[in-house]
Design a protein around this nucleic acid. Structure first.
Length: 94
DNA sequence: GTTGAGCGTT
């Protein structure tokens, strides 16, 4: 599951997220979103974890104070990566 | 050495 982490400190990095989320499960990917134009932090990030661990981490870390800022943690909106296929697998069915 | 609403790239 992809997790959206907002309102993070500009000092927070990928490892800051990793160390925080890894406490609640296996972190598959942890990436602070930096402005592609300036290379500076945009103040939010994405974390990918197994569904069960992700939900635990969300409820555990949402609203917590990290590096002076209160984290806004929730499930990410968009289905998955912005690539052809839109997150839908060929075998996806109802 | 700055700032503060937000859902990103391989």
């Amino acid at each position: 599951m992809r997790i959206y982490v907002g309102n993070i400190s500009f000092r927070s990095t990928d490892e800051t997220l990793y160390e925080a989320f890894s406490q609640y499960g296996q972190v598959e990917e942890a990436a602070v979103i930096t402005d592609r134009q300036t290379g500076r932090s945009r103040g939010f990030a994405f974390v990918t974890m197994p569904d069960e661990d992700a939900q635990k981490a969300i409820e555990a870390l949402d609203g917590t104070d990290v590096d002076g800022r209160t984290w806004r943690v929730s499930e990410a909106r968009e289905p998955t990566a912005r690539r052809p296929g839109g997150g839908r697998r060929d075998g996806d069915r109802d």
